[in-house]
Design a protein around this nucleic acid. Structure first.
Lengths: 344, 344
DNA sequence: TGTTAGCACTCTATTTTGTCGAGTGCTAAC
DNA sequence: GTTAGCACTCGACAAAATAGAGTGCTAACA
């Protein structure tokens, strides 16, 4: 027995129906589709076949059929049609993306909010990994009590800061000098190479300050990698709208899994190697997300991918729409970031 | 009829019991308390009195009694005893507060997490309002295409940055000069006065750049006030553990109210005028929080209060413990911030 | 006068039972 | 290969039955 065109059509109809209704699809419902013009009995036979092939599942005898993960996979690979975004949806996204976006942080937040508002699923956005960015400026600002603030700015306009200790023998005025020298020497260097370079080049006029410089550089490197708490989440509650989570305990489990952010961060990081990625139900390594599908995309400035973002929803997800939204957002986000996030 | 010592004692016992169990308290349960040594019938009479006085409510005949908001108010004002923190709890807080806290953002996040982990309620933390801080350093960093990054550092070690437009006639080198002049002139000025001062003093060597300076100052001012999306939330899901929210719809309403953050921000801002504040049930202006109690505290560096943080939970909240935790946290947070957030 | 035992009553939560309907698989006929 | 027909299964829902917690009131007691 194989998957002929008719079976495929019926399967698609079932999936579309199930995505809409969330309740098992019976043979009668499908037999009403005019394009097939088949009786419910015939559909039943086909459904039995599809079940045997592993594309459908039955919660219990005398319930309708529910698509399996395998079916969704087939669906996204071969059957799904993209849903063009409506004007309203585009407006909604624009509205989010045009508000005072003068800081990376708020760009990430707004992106997450736009995504969750348009899709009604949970959105996650990973802040940019700056490893491939280039240094523009480094500034050491003296604070009281042997502390200083290191501020790093990349050519793409991202700023990071960290507080470090300053040994007593380094005078306040010297920090300005060191800032100048470091900026000059490492101007336009890739952020992730600076550590190595300083190790090799530790000589010349700054030789006697090398211990201090190490701690500066260590702070710089630490700040380049985003970490899990910085993943922006939005619309976690959206999940509560879906009947899949009408049970408080399921909802709790999901929210707990998501709140940690560690898993999400790992997933996003892994996904940042591909332009798009879709993992469905059991394809997710994580036990907690076996009932979910996760769709991600990467954003970039210029060539280099900076990070990724995505959507988590029930496997019964509106894949067509989600993908369209992510595609749109991917462009939109890359543009906003390229424009140096200045919009007011 | 008035509230004598015995009535007070019984009321306290009922509240304590109800905080534990979340289900209406019957006369028998209280009559078992040895310290009263009264029969359930007597307790019943007293309970009827307490109900008449407005301290107790009855969900329906033949259910036990439930404390009213008025009762909780009395409880926190006159009857409650603080719960000392256990060693484990202190350890838990310490663990959160000692991890790489080299950025204000992460201090806020860790604080929120510690609070929600220890109390099992929802925690919110407002980032510092820098209005009363003093300027330490201001740096304009040129980026490409007529943009620059303004970085501001306060004497207390907080940094903020914003991207601004730079008019063509302002050369890259001049930004360095302007940075120096601004830093010199406004060194140690209160952040919220800088706007006014520049308006008055706009003369001398920077006269011909005044339009540009205005936009710099506007960016500075904008960054001083935290805004609602910056309120850190943690443990929103904790609420789902409580029977009050076993109904998904209630949970949804709560989570939606909280996700917006606007209300929380307003509340925290208002609360930042008092060291501590407790609002119970109906005392909350907001309709959404009529079933909740909100306890907040402020934190500071030196004299000036910088912001506030707090806990949201059901009115049936363990007030004694929450207040102890907030008190501990208030000290702890102020210390961490005073120490310039450097801990590794 | 305050306290208490006793009792009838109320109301909810839970369990049990019955009914309805959607959906199935199978068979036989077209 | 398709379809009508039919017996069967199972969950959802409603109605009825039961149990139990708690009350208010009354009358008696110290």
């Amino acid at each position: 027995m194989e998957l002929d065109a008719r079976k495929l059509g019926i399967l698609k109809a079932i999936i579309d129906e199930y995505i809409m209704s969330a309740s098992p699809v019976g043979s009668r419902a499908i037999s009403k589709h005019e394009e097939f013009n088949l009786s419910s009995a015939t559909i039943r036979n086909e459904m039995a076949d599809l079940e045997e092939l592993g594309y459908l599942e039955q919660p219990h005898t005398s319930a309708g059929r529910v698509p399996s993960d395998k079916a969704y996979r087939l669906y996204v690979d071969r059957m799904m049609q993209r849903a063009a975004l409506s004007d309203d949806e585009i407006k909604l996204i624009r509205a989010h993306m045009s508000a005072k976006l003068d800081e990376v942080e708020s760009v990430m937040k707004q992106t997450a909010q736009a995504l969750s508002a348009v899709t009604n699923y949970t959105a996650m956005v990973m802040p940019p990994m700056l490893a491939a960015n280039r240094l523009r400026h480094i500034q050491l600002v003296p604070l009281r009590e042997g502390r200083a603030l290191v501020v790093i700015v990349t050519t793409t306009g991202f700023a990071r800061d960290a507080i470090i200790r300053v040994p007593e023998e380094v005078r306040s005025g010297e920090l300005e000098r060191i800032s100048r020298i470091l900026t000059e020497r490492f101007y336009d260097c890739r952020m992730d190479h600076i550590g190595d370079m300083i190790a090799k080049e530790m000589s010349g006029e700054l030789y006697e300050r090398r211990a201090f410089l190490c701690s500066v550089m260590e702070a710089v490197e630490r700040k380049m990698e985003p970490d899990s708490p910085n993943v922006q989440l939005s619309g976690t509650n959206n999940m509560l709208h879906y009947p899949e989570y009408s049970d408080v305990n399921k909802a709790k489990t999901f929210l707990a899994a998501v709140e940690g952010r560690n898993m999400l961060y790992d997933m996003l990081k892994r996904a940042s190697k591909l332009e798009f990625s879709i993992t469905i139900g059991n394809e997710n390594e994580d036990e907690m997300f076996k009932d979910c599908s996760i769709v991600t995309a990467t954003y970039q400035v210029g060539e280099e991918p900076l990070g990724s973002f995505g959507i988590i929803g029930p496997t019964r997800m509106n894949y067509g729409k989600v993908i369209s939204v992510l595609e749109y957002m991917r462009r939109s986000l890359s543009e906003v970031l390229s424009a140096d996030q200045d919009e007011d």
